[in-house]
Design a protein around this nucleic acid. Sequence first.
DNA 1: TTGTAGGCGTTATCAT
DNA 2: ATGATAACGCCTACAA
Lengths: 357, 357
Amino acid sequence: MIESGFKVETRSPVAIRDVAAQAGVSRATASKALNPAAMSVIAPATRERVQRVARELGYYPSAIARGLSRKRMDTLGVVLTPGSVTPNESPFFGILFNGVLQAAAAHGQNVTLCVGETWRGAAESLPRFRDGRCDGFLIFYQTSESDIIDALVNSGVPTVLVDDRRDDPRLSWVDVDNRGAARAMTEYLVGLGHRRVALITDNDAESVYIENRIVGYREAMDERGLPRQEVLLSFAEAFGGGIYPAVQNLARLPAASRPTALFCTSDSAAAEAISALTDYGLRVPEDVSVAGFNDDNGGKDVKPALTTMRQPYSRIGEEAVSLLVEQVGDISRRGRQVMLPTELIVRDSTGPAPIEK
Amino acid sequence: MIESGFKVETRSPVAIRDVAAQAGVSRATASKALNPAAMSVIAPATRERVQRVARELGYYPSAIARGLSRKRMDTLGVVLTPGSVTPNESPFFGILFNGVLQAAAAHGQNVTLCVGETWRGAAESLPRFRDGRCDGFLIFYQTSESDIIDALVNSGVPTVLVDDRRDDPRLSWVDVDNRGAARAMTEYLVGLGHRRVALITDNDAESVYIENRIVGYREAMDERGLPRQEVLLSFAEAFGGGIYPAVQNLARLPAASRPTALFCTSDSAAAEAISALTDYGLRVPEDVSVAGFNDDNGGKDVKPALTTMRQPYSRIGEEAVSLLVEQVGDISRRGRQVMLPTELIVRDSTGPAPIEK
DNA sequence: TTGTAGGCGTTATCAT
DNA sequence: ATGATAACGCCTACAA
């Protein structure tokens, strides 16, 4: 056998007791010398000695032991279903998640993704939420229909809903004003002279946020006495490519009843709509205006560039983390609710209504 | 003060000792009665009593305490940079990640995502990898250039590279045969009669896997004595939309020297290339064939449907988890390396070379 | 400024 | 089949 030439710093049986011993101090002193919080209590000389020894010995504190002792892991869990990390289904997840990461770092918190197919069953999943790994949870929209949320709140687990809301005052959430945003978009289109503005959704009313967008559209149209045209596809239908044929159905209508503007509740739906219209021989925006929603990557490769409603992704992340940290810090406090505005981004896919002959 | 009507099951100070007391057994017995592993040692009667009490009391085991005791968290860390969860930059991450989730569940392991901007600095990030939260790590391609990998291996931390490789025999990895795949794709195009096959990459040689694809292309072309045409864009260039103008430059070449086939090293690059060609007035595949790579969602909305090279995403996930679990189980074992084949998916974006006049 | 001692919640060892 | 006891590695009163 050839002896291995280089020495491997094998995995740490080196605990704080070893550092303490080597530095000639007690474990308590070593602990303090190593932790920013209590560090100032220790004499500079010993502190540096301890830190040096720790480095030399290759000491790495155990988050587990520390957590057991402090009863806190400084870790926030982001809860979502596998679909969320699959870009097709939710292209803007990444942007949102980055906001969360930033904010968490600013609060000195770790973030871990809790991805699970079956968060719906509270009974089965509660143990995982209460095993102490995370101090609290950010629940992303996809999961919010589940009964897990009530279970969490009843258990007193700090919980914040992201991009969704609930009536329970104990629960914190941060949401965007989907209804207002949909109103604003509809009003913008109407303001361009469009009278027949159709709504196309690729996720029907399964999600609260889509539902609210539908309501906003209806309010705006009804207030002006304009006729509504709604194409409400289920997620499955839309995912199976249903947007395209649905839009072509609209395109086939006689010009007098064909919508001159399409308000799509996502950028990807808008992209699909544009390709359907174009293939059918209609020009965007000259013949038909198309608006999207989210301003996620769907708008990127589309031509003409999409008019859309931008969500304040980083602010959502920041607020969500703040709310959660609040709750973790004071477990018995009431929830706080935050509603964020969206921003209309006008690009090239919308324009004045064509002149009716 | 109004007294709250409903009782809230506040957060668990209920530990196993409470269950034990209430059930009239020792903590040891309670522990065994609750854990599948040792459960069989306990008398059925007591076992059921303990379990019932646990349920009634709302007992939830602390993963932290258990981890401290067992020195194992049954948790695998997936290491990546924030970009990876942003669909634009890496559309197929989700698919791959799902494979990992499946496999991990099958092995009884939890998965947590370790997302960090700065995994590159081993010194700063090693403490986080050695704090005991995870038993081992899956390193995704994006992070692999970092010196953190050597640090992990030297520290004896179970580590598996995913979609990448290293020479160090202590290190496990699972990778796809990018070189072979690129050869195969090139050969397929040449087999269709194409002589001027251009390579377009949107990530130049920064990544090993791209580098290998380039090598594969070169081998195939050189062997046949065909002239190479390479457009190697940096990631930044490509992300800034550089593919489009680059392809138009190719399109502007006189027909006699213009490539008749484009081999793009990603589906999104291929999509961009198609739109550039189409806008220029060239037909795909009649005038120019375009092939992609990955078979991620880039191919989905593109017309014509992309010919591409599919990566065995779920198998990558499965293998990676298996390798990691192996290492965690036997810390001192050598690494194991797995290379997986890709699959040529022929769709509509490629066809016979046009007849030269 | 430093040290002593006990506890965090669980599992494992070894008796009984 | 069950129980007493000692880890696991760290933190934090409280005492010195």
